[in-house]
Write a protein that binds this DNA or RNA. Structure first.
Lengths: 371, 371
DNA sequence: AGCTTGATTTCAAGCGCTCGCACCCTGCTC
DNA sequence: GAGCAGGGTGCGAGCGCTTGAAATCAAGCT
């Protein structure tokens, strides 16, 4: 690239006592410049415990020398010696899931506050890829692992792999009871409860349900929430109005599936005025199917989703849904692992933390009261 | 965490000739075990140039020894010595822009092939954050930089900052003519041309336009493409039907703005049967405004967007739009920087590459021929 | 026999940093 | 005046790896 030139505000090379010194300024240069040993420089610049004993005059001189020379510590050397990478591994099972974006934003933001940097990997829901990436991350000595298992069909061994990594690990989107891996999830049961409750409060009684794929972790608790509500209010759950999404590795697929299942629902000629979809994608598919069949949403049928992905508020009609606090979940995950890292550093024991975060009903225009 | 236990398939510690050896297996252990020097081990395990001279019998023995001990090279040490990080910095100006997801997927995927790992940063469209992150990435000696400047109002100094980083750098989404920073963009002019052309070919003649914010890089070329088409076909561009998005730091804001501007358009009582939106978000906003005003899309008005974000195909109606090959752009960006890295490694000179990728018309259901 | 050649392997010097272990003061106690 | 406490600083040993230079050895050549 530009091999020289007169730019150099970052002073790449500098001529000094006759010979060209390379761009790299080491701690020893700072030592020489400031008149102290590199030990002292290290202590001061890292604000290590021993820095308490160092008079501020000394500190000042060292800091000024460092700045004057434009000293930047070599992180490779630092890491080699200190065995720390200041890096966190983030493994996502499928980045294209719109659910991920905000979680990622949350992770990034909180990590930024703590001066860690994320290494991002996307497992594409493939076991081999998961393993390769996990190995790569461990080789790089990431200090913690955040796993976004949003849409995960992978066998339980994943968990086993993670457990033996022996660094603080948190899994987002999958409930765990392990004592070695933390978890952050939304309270699916509560959320689903709130969803039916909302429709019910609008007067809907004949409600259709599209449940999640059986093998997906979120499916069961959401259904449980619905059953809870039904039991509590004597709402009738008509088996003819309950359908399940098929398994698929692709999170977007639930759109297509939602569409197909809703067509099926309509075909059954069992009237319904409300529909609780497993997630927003499914809801979008359902809305399209309803529109195609000439049933206007929300006039003739109310639809509620789950997640509140970015597209939901932009949809026509804007989708009523159960919001997962995605950004908050990202923040939470980081807090947990950072706490874990600190615990490891001062050799404290911490056991895994399991957080279940409260969802929130976002009422928009895809639901309306039965008139 | 789990401080011991009988797991240990990864053999964390092993007792040998009486004393506990720590989990860390070094190259010297492999040397001892295989009966060769660590130099030879290094050469073999890295398949360095000199490995040509090493008989395969030796290689075998070393490799087996390494496997037997479960040797994993310490990347800190490797990096310190070799000055390589096998890491690429990715800077995104705003992750929440739905445009980013697929580009990121493309980047990740191609990086994976080349065994680089991405460090992800999200600049939040803030100058200070950009600078801090850039510094952090350079401190970590990332070997290249990929900047996703999708929605970028930041001053030109960003470019200057990047130029002096002196590592291979590519900017996605911003046309450049520099010789030090590469770029990958979609051919906006062509895309916009194709958009009007599509409406025109469907018989639309009174077409409204919502242009991008003046300060956004994409705005001008897209408009140029439209003017080109208008000139070529004598299409009349009615100034009353042309509106500009306001500036905003938030990419999602164009939804809201699209909505407002379309209302304004309707208020003007200047009839139009087609609308070319600056991007998909704007189109979504426009569709909602039209729907609210009782104008059905596409029956009474065709709408076309630009980008083809994930939500477009899920929309009601599915949005006709100009697809940016986002994943391909990500791949391309990685190819460019990887080539750049290789060039630096063998001290070749490479100058910046500027790629303009072809967009693609995605016809869906928000446009229809004028009957 | 002496020398070149090329294949195979090793030596040893760090890369730049941190940290355990002294060391050296100064002031004070006994 | 020897001993001691503790603040302030420096020495030097690596962390585990790669690499240029050099050693070793067998074979080939004159």
């Amino acid at each position: 690239m530009s091999d020289d030139g007169q730019l150099g505000s970052r002073s790449r090379d500098s001529v000094q006592d006759g010979k060209v010194k390379s761009a790299m300024v080491t701690i020893r240069d700072v030592a020489k410049e400031s008149g102290f040993s590199s030990t002292t420089v290290s202590i001061v610049l890292n604000n290590a415990p021993l820095a308490r004993y160092i008079p501020s005059a000394t500190k000042k001189r060292i800091e000024r020398a460092a700045k004057r020379l434009g000293y930047r510590p070599n992180l490779f050397a630092r890491s080699l010696r200190s065995k720390r990478s200041h890096t966190v591994g983030v493994m996502i099972f499928d980045m294209t899931d719109p659910f991920c974006t905000l979680v990622l934003r949350g992770i990034e933001n909180t990590l930024y506050q703590s001066s860690y940097l994320p290494i991002l990997t996307d497992v594409h829901n493939e076991r081999a890829r998961f393993e390769r990436y996990l190995e790569m991350l461990l080789d790089r000595r990431v200090e913690a692992l955040i796993v976004l298992a949003n849409w995960l069909f992978v066998d339980i061994d994943v968990l086993a792999d993670l457990e033996k990594s022996s660094i603080p690990t948190v899994m987002i989107g999958r409930e765990l009871q392990t004592d070695s891996v933390s978890s952050v999830i939304v309270d699916n049961e509560l959320g689903a409860y709130a969803a039916v409750e909302h429709l019910h409060s609008l007067g809907h009684r004949r409600i259709a349900f599209i449940r999640g794929p059986k093998t997906l972790a979120d499916s069961a608790p959401r259904w449980k929430g619905i059953r809870n509500f039904a039991r509590a209010t004597d709402l009738d759950l008509d088996p003819k109005l309950i359908l399940d999404l098929p398994e698929s590795r692709d999170p977007i697929s639930s759109f297509e599936a939602g569409y197909k299942l809703t067509e099926e629902l309509i075909r059954r000629r069992r009237p319904f005025t409300g529909l609780v979809a497993f997630d927003d994608m499914t809801a979008f598919g359902a809305i399209r199917a309803l529109a195609k069949a000439g049933m206007k949403v929300p006039e003739q049928c109310s639809v509620i989703g789950f997640d509140d992905v970015a597209a939901s508020s932009l949809y026509t009609p804007p989708l009523t849904t159960i919001r997962q606090p995605m950004e908050g979940m990202g923040n939470m995950a980081v807090s947990i692992v950072v706490e874990g890292i600190n615990a490891v550093l001062d050799k404290r024991e911490v056991s895994a933390v399991h957080r279940k975060m409260a969802p929130e009903l976002a009422v928009r225009e895809s639901t309306r009261s039965l008139t």
